[in-house]
Design a protein around this nucleic acid. Structure first.
Lengths: 152, 152
DNA sequence: CGAGACTTAGTCGTGCACAACTTAATCGGA
DNA sequence: TCCGATTAAGTTGTGCACGACTAAGTCTCG
């Protein structure tokens, strides 16, 4: 343990409750659990919902672009996208200009689902029960953390 | 959208990057990805590591107690514990006083692994790159968030 | 031009995560 | 006492996540 870490109070113990990593893991699952009943109504899982968020924002994205946005591998996305296609929410088509690439675009049904999803973010935000300041602080800290962990 | 939410800037948009939930999900996976190479050396996955943390803290816990500590179902823990047992780190024995319950306890090998794991928390804390204040603030916010989400 | 390097999706295997359910043991009150 | 309710662990099925790998298309440079 470095002097800096010891004097700063940075946890280097093996106690579960000391660990930020566990707080993160537990919080993430708790949030997803809160989403579940709301997303069940829409016929979506949580990762599927995230894919739909990207598509509602910008249609016609490649699998690779989705992976960049969500930080997911094609080995995760390919089966997930197949399920979304089987459920009639998206279609997948090889790009004409680059046949390695697959363009994902919304069906009419997929586009329409956006209206039903409109109430979800606020319902979750309210269930989180954080003040606006806490909400912003948490988001900023988590983004910083992710950036630190992925850019080195 | 309530007036409070609108004026406070609480996100009710469907933009991926606005969402605390996504920041949380991405950060959690980024942390686990950082752990992976360190835990590979110990022959553990991340959830297995969490179980070992509990056992290093207090041996002889039931599956139920593990589930309470880690917020995991027996349907997640039972197969995980089987793998830990197959790897020689733990043993499972039915309690004599209550045969519904299974006591999990460390083997010699499982106990010994603790020494090798000692360097892990600090390595992760340093990779996170947060100041002690940010680290504490993040932990506190995530605990508050989890508490709010699970107690209502 | 043409061969090797690179890129893009996708498959496969392993290990969570969780809902729904089952089995077995224990408890608790009439 | 005994029987219904409760509790503990485990099974099964579905859907991520990710590493390792494959197949096919594109690029690049000699």
């Amino acid at each position: 343990m470095t002097t800096a870490a010891r004097t700063s109070g940075l946890s280097s113990s093996l106690l579960l409750q000391d660990q930020l990593c566990f707080a993160l893991y537990a919080a993430s699952r708790a949030v997803i659990a809160r989403y579940r009943p709301l997303l069940d109504v829409l016929g979506l899982t949580y990762p599927q919902y995230l894919v739909m968020l990207v598509l509602w924002e910008r249609d016609q994205v490649s699998v690779r672009e989705l992976g960049t946005a969500l930080q997911l591998e094609s080995s995760t996305l390919s089966p997930l996208l197949k399920r979304l296609e089987a459920n009639g929410l998206i279609r997948r088509e090889r790009r004409v200009d680059d046949e390695r690439s697959v363009a994902i675009h919304l069906t009419e049904e997929g586009t329409a689902l956006r209206d039903k999803a409109n109430t979800v973010p606020l319902a979750i935000a309210e269930a989180m029960g954080l003040t606006p300041e806490q909400h912003t602080a948490a988001k900023d800290l988590l983004r910083l953390l992710t950036a630190n962990l992925t850019t080195s």
